[in-house]
Simulated assay, not measured.
Amino acid sequence: MTGRLERRKAQTRAALIDAARTLLTSRDPAGVSIQEITDAADVGFGSFYNHFPSKQELFDLAVAAVADEHRAMIRAATEGLTDPAEALAVAVRLTARFPHTHPALARIIDRAGLGYPGPWSIDDLRHAHAVGRLCFDDAEVASACVSGSLLGVLRNGLRAGDPSLVDQAADRLAVSLLRMFGLVEGDARKVVNRPLPAA
């Protein structure tokens, strides 16, 4: 009986997070009612407060779940790459293509805005700097530069509609970031012209 109850609680919690994630693709959390969330999750209204103290915590967890999925996708795509510059370029190129490859993820990232955690770690950037492949003064500022510019390009991509324009912008952003981090033009373009792993 205890095991069954715990499974049911876990299923209800997962359903609420999935519902919040789906709602994030088209709605601002501030405009979503708890009734709408529980209806979308197909659970009773009273179940909500058994799992979450507020809508904000639920939506934060939904965004965190998307970020985890995003990071896993990038880890799989960059596994085996030995050039830190290429690993960053792949992360940027794949993510900036989301408006046509993973539109639901793109809309959630756009809605989360600058609060969205990027798919690269500060430690990865520090490693790239330590081995002399990327050049910057502060890894956290470098990460903010990547995240902010990527968010802008991703947002434009959601409006563009044309996949070829989205792809071009993704690659141009990767070149620009690599140049900003110290690679010469030719090297940056060579890195970005390498085949893109499947995501």
Rank of each mutant, 00 (worst) to 15 (best):
G3S: 05
T12Y: 04
V92F: 12
R179D: 05
S143F: 11
L165A: 08
W120T: 06
L16K: 00
T101C: 12
A41L: 12
R75N: 15
L81N: 09
V184Y: 06
E69F: 06
R4G: 03
A10K: 07
L125P: 02
V90M: 13
M180H: 08
A142W: 01
A144E: 04
E6A: 11
A40S: 13
S176P: 06
I34L: 10
A14Q: 11
D124E: 14
D124H: 10
A62I: 10
L105E: 06
E57K: 12
R194F: 00
D42I: 03
G44V: 01
R97N: 15
T2K: 00
A144T: 05
D162F: 05
N156P: 00
P53N: 15
I17K: 02
D68G: 15
A144L: 04
A160N: 06
R7T: 06
L134W: 04
L165I: 04
A198P: 11
M180K: 07
V90Y: 07
I74T: 06
A112C: 11
L125V: 01
L165V: 05
L173Q: 09
T12W: 03
A19G: 04
V63R: 15
P119G: 07
I17N: 03
K190F: 01
S149G: 01
I37C: 10
R107K: 15
P117F: 15
I109W: 12
I34S: 04
I37N: 12
Y49V: 01
L183S: 09
F48A: 05
V153F: 01
A142E: 09
A174V: 03
L5V: 07
R107D: 02
I34Y: 07
R13T: 04
Q35V: 08
T22Q: 09
A112L: 13
F45G: 09
I74N: 11
A174K: 02
A106Q: 09
I108Y: 09
L178E: 13
V153I: 08
G115F: 12
A144C: 02
I108W: 09
E79K: 07
R8E: 10
V90A: 12
A89F: 02
A30P: 01
F59W: 14
G148W: 01
M1W: 05
C135P: 00
V141G: 06
A128S: 04
R93S: 14
L24C: 03
G113P: 06
S121H: 11
H127R: 04
P197W: 00
T82C: 08
H51L: 10
D28Q: 07
R71N: 13
D187H: 07
A64L: 14
F48C: 05
Q168N: 07
F52S: 09
V43P: 09
A64Y: 13
D110A: 14
A64E: 15
A15R: 10
G161K: 03
L94Q: 14
Q35P: 02
G80I: 05
F98M: 15
H70C: 08
K55D: 14
G113E: 01
G118M: 10
T78P: 13
R172K: 03
L58I: 09
S176W: 05
V66I: 14
W120L: 11
R21C: 02
A20P: 00
A30C: 03
